[in-house]
C-alpha cells in the first residue's frame, strides 16, 4: 500500500505556555518549542504499521518553510520512507482551503492508495483532510481511531463519535482519512534515529513545480483571514487561592468539605 501522510510543524502545546504578543498580531514565538503536530504523529505511526503488515511505502509531506524539514526528518526517523517539503513564499497566508489545494497538487504528483492527515492541528480547524478528499473526489472518514486492511480495494475504519462510541464503516481505496489520537502508541524517536536520516535528500516543491495558480493559494486566495490574537474575558473566572502552601491547602480543604467533596 502506497501511503501519504500530511504533517505540520506546530508549537508543542504540552511544552509551551501560549501567550499573545503585545499588539495582538501573533503569539509570542521566540521561546516556543516546536514539534510535529500530535495527531499527525499518530497518523504516521499508523501508516508505518500498515506498511509493515502489507508492504508498500510511507511518504510524509508538509506545507511549510525550511524549518519544517525537521518534522519530516523526525517522521522519517520513525520509519517513513521519504519526505517531501512544499515550500514557497506564495504559500504564505494560505487558509485551510489553500493548504488543501497545495496538498492536492502534491498528491497528484504521486500515486497513493491511502492519504492520511491528523484530525486537527494547532488552529483546531480540522478541515484540511476533508477538503483534500473532496478536491480529489475520494471518499473520506474523519476522527479515525481504527484501521483494518481488508484487501487492496477496501479497508474497515472506526470513527470516534460522541460518548466514546465507535462508528465502523467500510471504505473504498483510494481514500483520505483524518486520524484521531489514541489510535496506536507512537514509537519513540531517539537522537540516533534522527542522525541516521540527517543526510537523506528531501525534495522541495514550490508553486510552479506544482502547477498552482498564484491566486489559488496564499493570502491572495484566502477567503478566511485571521485578523488578530487576543485573550478572551470569560466571566469571572476562578477564585485563585493565594498565600503559603499551608494556607492554600487549608482553604481548599475547607471549600471541598463545604461542597461535599470530602467524604
Amino acid at each position: 500500500m502506497e501511503i501519504l501522510v500530511c504533517v505540520k510543524r506546530v508549537p508543542d502545546s504540552s511544552e509551551n505556555e501560549i501567550e499573545v504578543n503585545k499588539d495582538g498580531s501573533d503569539i509570542e514565538r521566540d521561546d516556543l518549542v516546536y514539534s510535529v503536530n500530535e495527531w499527525d504523529n499518530y497518523a504516521v505511526e499508523e501508516a508505518i504499521q500498515i506498511r509493515d503488515n502489507v508492504g508498500g511505502s510511507v511518504t510524509v509531506v508538509t506545507v511549510g518553510d525550511d524549518e519544517s524539514e525537521e518534522v519530516l526528518r523526525r517522521e522519517m526517523a520513525m520509519g517513513a520512507d521519504s519526505g517531501v517539503l512544499l515550500s514557497d513564499d506564495a504559500f504564505e497566508g494560505s487558509d485551510g482551503k489553500g493548504v488543501a489545494t497545495i496538498l492536492k497538487a502534491a498528491v497528484e504528483k504521486g500515486k497513493y492508495d491511502l492519504i492520511m492527515t491528523g484530525a486537527q492541528a494547532d488552529d483546531g480547524a480540522a478541515q484540511v483532510g476533508g477538503m483534500l478528499a473532496s478536491m480529489l473526489d475520494l471518499p473520506y472518514a474523519s476522527l479515525v481511531n481504527k484501521i483494518e486492511v481488508i484487501d487492496d480495494k477496501k479497508i474497515k475504519v472506526g470513527r470516534e463519535i460522541e460518548g466514546g462510541n465507535q462508528e465502523m464503516s467500510e471504505i473504498d481505496l483510494p481514500c483520505v482519512l483524518s486520524i484521531q489520537t489514541g489510535i496506536n502508541e507512537p514509537r519513540y524517536v531517539g537522537i540516533r534515529g534522527i542522525r541516521k536520516v540527517a543526510s537523506v535528500e528531501i525534495p522541495t516543491y514550490g508553486s510552479s513545480d506544482l502547477g498552482l495558480a498564484a491566486d489559488a493559494v496564499g493570502a491572495a486566495g484566502a477567503k478566511v483571514k485571521r485578523l488578530d490574537y487576543f485573550v478572551p474575558e470569560m466571566g469571572e473566572g476562578a477564585e485563585m487561592l493565594e498565600g503559603s502552601n499551608e494556607e492554600i491547602m487549608e482553604k481548599l480543604i475547607e471549600l471541598l468539605k463545604a461542597k461535599g467533596g470530602i467524604k
Binding site: 508549537p11 502545546s13 501560549i18 488552529d123 483546531g124 485571521r226 487576543f230 485573550v231
Partner: peptide
C-alpha cells in the same frame, strides 16, 4: 486556537 489558549477574530 492552541487548545483554547488564544482566541482570534
Amino acid at each position: 486556537e492552541f487548545s483554547g489558549m488564544a482566541s482570534t477574530h
